[in-house]
């Protein structure tokens, strides 16, 4: 599905990301972990053509991301609050994304029904604009927005941060169920090792822009990761 080759990003002579070769097959649930500055967000931004690679390329479904825009039709994402339109209510935001992806209001309404638990009554019909939601609630809206339109690739940057414990558990369930769907490739980054181990089929560790570990989670994985990061 996603093919990364000789990808690098350099700012003023400092290389912040350097991935020689990485292939993410269709349907994989891909977990990305690393400390601050490891290059997680840089990698996701490159995947979404928000920044330009210094060298190399990424293709998804054989579409080269920085030359052809058609990946947008099957990719949806939530990186940070700049993916929310502050002056919209959550409903309007969901309808907007739905319309861009060919869903009408009824489709979106039916879809949102599945996330009533996740929203915990704090998102819909609350007479609040997105800009006035708390960080956690804004994140909930953003994550669900990124699932609209049955995308084949879903990219979530640190989805667990700022969520309350109950919502974290519910989010894990959602990501796991997405992972079961073999048509959906999910990319999730996190600082939380345990969450990542739980929801991913594969875990890649970035350090200073390089892939230093590429694991298929087993019962030992969490321990291995903890040892790596405490070193």
């Amino acid at each position: 599905m996603i093919q990364v080759s000789n990808l690098s990003k350099t700012y003023n002579g400092t290389t912040v990301l350097n991935i020689e070769n990485l292939e993410i097959p269709k349907g994989q649930s891909f977990g990305l972990v690393g400390n601050n500055g490891a290059g997680k967000t840089t990698f996701f931004s490159l995947l979404l053509d928000l920044i330009q690679p210094s060298s190399g390329k990424i293709t998804t479904n054989t579409i080269q991301i920085n030359t052809d825009e058609s990946w947008k039709t099957f990719t949806n994402s939530f990186i940070d609050e700049t993916f929310l339109i502050g002056y919209l209510t959550p409903e309007e935001y969901f309808y907007f994304i739905g319309e861009l992806r060919g869903w009408n209001k009824a489709d979106v309404d039916a879809f949102l029904k599945n996330y009533e638990d996740f929203f915990n009554g704090e998102i819909l019909n609350n007479k609040k604009y997105l800009r006035d939601l708390s960080k956690g609630n804004a994140k909930k809206a953003g994550i669900v927005g990124a699932l609209i339109g049955k995308p084949e690739v879903i990219i979530l940057d640190e989805p667990f941060a700022n969520l309350d414990p109950t919502t974290q558990i519910r989010l894990k369930k959602i990501i796991k169920s997405l992972a079961e769907d073999k048509n959906t490739t999910v990319l999730v980054s996190s600082h939380d090792l345990q969450h990542t181990v739980e929801v991913s089929d594969r875990i890649v560790v970035l350090e200073k822009g390089n892939v230093v570990k590429d694991l298929v989670p087993t019962t030992e994985t969490l321990k291995e990761l903890e040892e790596f990061f405490s070193a």
Binding site: L48, T82, I85
Partner: peptide, 13 residues
């Protein structure tokens, strides 16, 4: 501007 990344990644021409 405040949500330009969204506009650039959504299915918008």
């Amino acid at each position: 501007s405040s949500y330009y990344p969204l506009m650039m990644t959504q299915n918008i021409t």
